[in-house]
């Protein structure tokens, strides 16, 4: 049997919906496990890369300094990098803040928002341990080279399956029209 392909995954500024959709491949997960092995990923809770990987799946775009750091680490550690879902491809819903100045967003979230009740001292989180927010939310392709993109919010499980299968086997695949969506 051919050697297993090594896959790593991460969620940056995303909602984990894309990872959930990957689990939606259901029993095909058993077929996948025959041909791939997961390295760093929230699926198996491996926190650090232990070797060079074949395929890196990125969910979410970059909204803070930590996202940028992790994304660059993935680029260094993976031969093929795939942007999974609208957030990774174009910023997605988090990027809806891009038309609003950052300070306004923070003030709304911590000081002025109608649901802000508990913040009696009127503090905005500023612990030096916290990642620094970027001025805008950036698509992954604005930070590193992305080799492939799988659209959808989240991508249809059949689309994820078809793409992964093609990447792992190296065989071209037909994508059915009705699974290729942006929403």
């Amino acid at each position: 049997m051919a050697e297993k392909k090594i896959i790593a995954t991460t969620s940056l500024a995303g909602c984990f919906g894309c990872h959930m959709s990957l689990l939606d491949i259901d029993e095909r997960m058993l077929d996948l496990i025959e041909v791939v092995e997961f390295n760093k990923s929230p699926i198996n809770d491996i926190k650090k890369f232990t070797r060079k990987c074949d395929i890196g799946l990125i969910e979410g775009g970059c909204c803070n300094s930590e996202n940028v750091h992790v994304l660059k680490l993935f680029r260094e550690s993976c031969k093929i990098l795939v942007a999974v879902g609208e957030c990774a491809i174009m910023g997605g819903l988090p990027a809806m803040r891009n038309g609003i100045p950052l300070k306004e967003c923070i003030d709304e979230a911590y000081l002025n928002g109608i649901t802000v009740h508990a913040n009696v001292n009127k503090t905005v989180p500023n612990d030096p341990e916290l990642p620094v927010l970027l001025d805008k939310v950036y698509p992954c392709s604005a930070v590193v080279k992305i080799d492939y993109s799988i659209p959808g919010c989240p991508p249809h499980a059949d689309l994820l399956w078809a793409t992964l299968y093609a990447l792992v086997t190296g065989k071209e695949t037909e994508i059915p029209y009705e699974v290729f969506k942006y929403d």
């Binding site: 942007a83 609208e86 491809i89 174009m90 997605g92 819903l93 990027a95 809806m96 698509p139 392709s141 992305i146 492939y148 993109s149 799988i150 659209p151 919010c153 994508i175 029209y177 290729f180 969506k181 942006y182 929403d183």
Partner: peptide
Amino acid sequence: HFCPTCEKSGDCELQALAYKYQITA
């Protein structure tokens, strides 16, 4: 174009054209 939040998604001609050509990004 934040399609996941858009009222026209699924009925949009621009999006439909992108689907037709399977534009990933």
